[in-house]
């Protein structure tokens, strides 16, 4: 497993968030999450334009073993989705940090500050 990049923010529910230069947020699931799920075979992403509330279901990732919800890390509107990962779910197992799921235009640009940093997220993983 690879270390949690320090330039990302994290949630307790194992999403990672990257703040882009234009203020949008790119969201994926962590390497720990893909490792725990095992071989991914199906990914369902939200529609572009969908309004999401922080902590509610945004996407679904399914491995051979199980289905898991992906939650919106903050409130916002979906402004892009990664359809390449839908066509190749296994790419998320290969590199969880580059296989993003969707981008959000956050309702409140400061909301991301309240998310976990890499060390705090590692503590969540270690405590599980």
């Amino acid at each position: 497993m690879s270390a949690n990049p320090s330039n990302l923010k994290y949630t307790k529910s194992h999403e990672w968030v990257r703040v882009e230069a234009d203020g949008t947020l790119t969201v994926g699931i962590t390497d720990h999450a893909q490792e725990a799920l095992g071989d991914l075979v199906f990914i369902e992403l939200p529609a572009v334009g969908k309004e999401l509330t922080a902590g509610t279901e945004a996407a679904v990732v399914e491995s051979v073993k199980a289905a898991a919800d992906v939650y919106a890390p903050v409130s916002g509107v979906v402004c892009a989705v990664n359809s390449a990962v839908v066509d190749a779910p296994e790419s998320l197992n290969a590199d969880a940090w580059s296989a993003w799921l969707f981008k959000l235009q956050p309702a409140d640009a400061a909301a991301v500050d309240a998310l976990l940093d890499a060390d705090a997220y590692q503590q969540v993983v270690d405590a599980a």
Binding site: G38, D39, V41, V64, K65, N93
Partner: peptide, 8 residues
């Protein structure tokens, strides 16, 4: 053991 690497 549930898997040793990729179960597929």
């Amino acid at each position: 053991p549930v898997n040793y690497g990729s179960q597929i």
